[in-house]
Design a protein around this nucleic acid. Structure first.
Length: 626
DNA sequence: TTAGGGTTAG
């Protein structure tokens, strides 16, 4: 081509109308090669894209994740337009480059190019991502000036921006002012209220909204799950299937409801949802498999969890799945499996992150792998370039504390580069209880009382330490303090699924229809059998300064014992009993459950606040180290 | 070319 022809051709509108639809049709990764060929041919002909064609080309490259080429084209265009800027803003936003988007938007603004209904939603998404509410407010002002306040996309994006920046009052004000609302505007506000813990306000909106789609239902379900309201989440999931046949649950719905099963340890419910996901063709989804993995692990079935992991491994090398598997082993006290899974992950070429190390270190801690844990704590920074956070220090304090190395743990706390939080002092206090160190216990407890005055668990823990030392006066003083502070004690409760139905017990609970049978078993049959096997009630776990006989009675009716009794009375031999407790299992229940597993030849899996205990043949998977 | 729901840890 003669050089003098090039400027002429560059002006030729026929070239634009020729190439634009071609580039527009070549979107997606598998068409990238073709797009590159057309681009090369165009360049050979000496044709430089104008703003319109440039926008199409930017979109094409962005759709196949070739952001570098998209950016290069953007910079070559001489007279940029709003359309061109929109295309690069879209490309950056969809690839998670929020900072770059903001920079480009700033440049657009300086050039005097006006943003439009396509610009603002992306820019606002980035403001939300970066929590830049002040820029979001400027965009809000600008959109009002150019008359875009009534655009549904801009309006909903503004609501979402306020929601993500934790400004619910402005989000609500905007919502109330909107003349035309879309189902998405309602959804954004519902999600905001749920995130804020304002369940009733979210429920009100959900009740009032004119039409619901799958996102509305999912926002409610995930909101319940995230606020610990597992029962409501599961109920609403069923309601959705029953009442709204038009909505089709998708993968987000499934991964939102699964944590509710995990939370309530409802294994059968979880299995049903798993089957449901398979029936609607979602089983191959990696996020669903990972959520299933977590659910099975939290419901006590490591075998099912591992199967989900293997399914993910067949197709993907996914960081979240590795992390979930490592964490699953850790919570089940399978430290060496957590370590070997971590090593497999490294061999598979996946870069670990902060969550990987939280799982790995807690796995070492729960299994007493002290030196291995300390080695990985060192490696995380030196070998894997992951900066230890407060949660990792908490794991190491726990690791040292459980092994009785209290002085080293205390030393580590004093050398931490950040302020010690509740997790650190909580781990220290537990260690002090195990090793009867009153002096450090009082230091840890006094920090905890300042850091989280509302947490009754800390008062109870110190009270237990005093009680074990026979310091009843201090126990009483603490009780007075608890009352004066207005702290409500968190009552211990346990639950179990028997033949697919959940049963909840409080300590000393007599409200269950089978209470008579349960109490006869616990007060008569069981003591005879376990005492014959060498059981001595460990009354040091009882708080009150009362007679030994009364202490023993109070132990006998701990909620976990009631739940185990119900399971033994209602299931056939060979059925694994699964019990979940909202607090840590007490030492006496731990001893008794080991004996029950031997005498009644039952596998019993107890999930407590921190971990799993697998009782079998008179032993526990924690090796009495918890 | 545009908005809304998101699995792992704590």
């Amino acid at each position: 081509m003669r050089t003098f022809l090039k400027p002429l051709l560059a002006q030729d509108p026929r070239f634009v109308s020729f190439y634009a639809p071609i580039f527009q049709s070549l979107t997606g990764k598998n068409l990238l090669k073709l797009g590159q060929q057309v681009h090369a041919q165009m360049a050979l002909r000496g044709f430089e894209p104008d703003a319109y064609l440039g926008a199409k080309m930017v979109a094409m490259y962005a759709s196949s994740d070739d952001l570098d080429s998209a950016v290069a084209i953007f910079h070559r265009v001489n007279n940029p337009s709003t359309l061109l800027y929109n295309s690069i803003i879209r490309a950056y936003t969809l690839h998670g480059f929020s900072e770059e988007t903001m920079e480009i938007y700033g440049r657009m603004h300086c050039l005097g190019l006006k943003g439009d209904n396509f610009t603002y939603p992306f820019v606002l998404k980035c403001c939300a991502e970066l929590s830049r509410i002040w820029i979001g407010k400027c965009v809000h002002g600008l959109s009002l000036r150019v008359g875009l306040e009534s655009d549904m996309y801009v309006g909903t994006s503004l609501i979402n921006m306020y929601v993500k920046c934790c400004d619910m009052s402005d989000a609500r004000r905007l919502f109330d002012k909107m003349t035309v609302r879309d189902v998405s505007s309602w959804n954004a506000l519902i999600a905001g209220y749920m995130k804020d813990g304002e369940i009733c306000l979210a429920e009100d909106l959900f009740g009032q909204m004119p039409g619901r789609n799958i996102v509305s239902w999912t926002a409610m379900i995930s909101g319940y799950t995230q606020n610990g309201l597992a029962e409501q989440a599961l109920f609403l999931f069923d309601e959705m299937l029953k009442k709204d046949s038009r909505v089709k649950p998708n993968w987000v719905t499934i991964i939102s409801v699964l944590p509710a099963c995990a939370h309530s340890a409802a294994l059968e419910r979880g299995r049903n949802i798993h089957n449901f996901a398979s029936r609607i063709g979602l089983e191959s989804n990696v996020s669903i498999q990972t959520a299933l993995l977590a659910m099975y692990a939290k419901c006590g079935s490591l075998l099912d969890a591992r199967q989900c992991f293997e399914r993910v491994r067949q197709t993907q090398n996914n960081l979240v799945a590795w992390n979930t598997m490592i964490t699953a082993y850790a919570s089940h006290g399978r430290g060496s499996e957590a370590v070997s899974t971590f090593e497999d992950m490294i061999v598979a070429g996946v870069q670990p992150d902060n969550i990987t190390f939280t799982g790995l270190l807690s796995g070492c801690s729960h299994s007493g792998l002290v030196d291995v844990g300390l080695k990985y704590f060192d490696y995380m920074k030196t070998v894997y370039s992951v900066e230890p956070g407060v949660e990792h220090y908490a794991c190491v304090v726990d690791l040292l504390g459980r092994a009785g190395r209290l002085a080293e743990a205390k030393d580590l706390i004093s050398k931490m580069p950040m302020q010690a939080g509740p997790s650190i002092w909580g781990a220290m206090l537990s260690a002090c209880r195990k090793y009867h160190n009153l002096e450090i216990a009082e230091i840890a407890a006094s920090c905890l009382f300042i850091l989280e005055p509302e947490n009754s668990g800390n008062y109870v823990m110190l009270s237990n330490i005093y009680a074990e030392a026979g310091m009843w006066k201090e126990v009483d003083n603490l009780r007075v303090l608890l009352k004066a502070q207005g702290v409500k004690k968190n009552p211990g409760c346990s639950w179990t699924e028997v033949n697919g139905k959940a049963h909840l017990f409080l300590g000393g609970d007599t409200s269950h229809p089978q209470a008579k049978e349960i109490y006869e078993f616990l007060l008569d049959e069981l003591p005879k059998k376990i005492k014959a096997a060498g059981y001595v009630p460990d009354t040091s776990f009882v708080l009150h300064d009362v007679s030994e006989e009364e202490k023993e009675h109070s132990l006998t009716t701990h909620s976990e014992k009631l739940a185990i009794a119900l399971g033994l009375l209602n299931t056939s031999p060979g059925v694994v009993l699964r019990v979940t407790k909202n607090l840590r299992i007490c030492g006496d229940c731990h001893t008794a459950t080991k004996l029950i597993s031997r005498i009644y030849k039952r596998e019993i899996i107890v999930r407590d606040l921190n971990r799993f205990h697998h009782f079998k043949d008179g032993n526990c998977s924690c090796g009495d180290y918890w």
